[in-house]
């Protein structure tokens, strides 16, 4: 009986401490030290309109934009409310069909040669904001043509947006698709 009482009281007070005070302290400290990150690393366009988060990928399918990775989220691609991967196993016929379809889509834009894996396989979260630098290079000719720019100029956008490994050590080089497309929109005038 005594132990049941202790159990009840401990759950109550530990809930106050760990479920109330602890998250509150972290929230206050986070908003003092890193307000931008704590609020979701949101980005605004030239008019101050919030257009997304630097960390959450967006769908792009027009020729003038770099295309992100395939997304398997439910209802529509890059649905931030239903983050998920495809969960298709390696021998699932549907996976094979989807990959073939994605390859065809790139071949139709004039791509020859090998296609980087990240462009034909869906990401884990369905919200992956990055593509590999190789996946960006591959798309440069298409974007240059659609925007009437030289291939070199579009190349430079990719180079300046590419992030190296963190602290020179962790992770692989990668390109943030939203940042790249926003830079293109900001600095070039469409024909």
């Amino acid at each position: 009986m005594k132990d049941l009482k202790s159990a009840l009281l401990l759950v109550l007070f530990l809930t106050l401490l760990l479920g109330g005070i602890y998250p509150a302290v972290v929230t206050v400290a986070a908003n003092l030290l890193f307000p931008h990150q704590a609020e979701g690393s949101l980005v605004a366009d030239g008019y101050g309109r919030v257009v997304g988060s630097k960390l959450i990928g967006q769908p792009f399918s027009e020729a003038k934009y770099f295309w992100p990775r395939p997304s398997a989220t439910a209802a529509f691609a890059y649905n931030p409310l239903l983050s998920a991967g495809s969960n298709l196993g390696p021998t699932h016929p549907e996976l094979i069909r989807q990959v073939k379809e994605r390859i065809t889509r790139f071949r139709d834009t004039g791509v020859t040669g090998e296609i980087p894996a990240d462009l034909v396989f869906a990401s884990a979260s369905g919200l992956d904001p990055h593509i590999s630098p190789e996946a960006a290079w591959l798309q440069v000719p298409r974007i240059a043509k659609a925007r009437g720019l030289s291939v070199e100029k579009v190349h430079r956008f990719v180079v300046t947006t590419t992030q190296g490994p963190q602290a020179g050590t962790l992770g692989a080089p990668r390109v943030n698709v939203l940042a790249l497309n926003m830079a293109l929109d900001r600095d070039t005038v469409l024909p």
Partner: peptide, 16 residues
Amino acid sequence: LGVHGGNMEGKEVRFG
């Protein structure tokens, strides 16, 4: 089919 790289289905680019 001309895909270059390992199995990236269900993986994120930033982790590799």
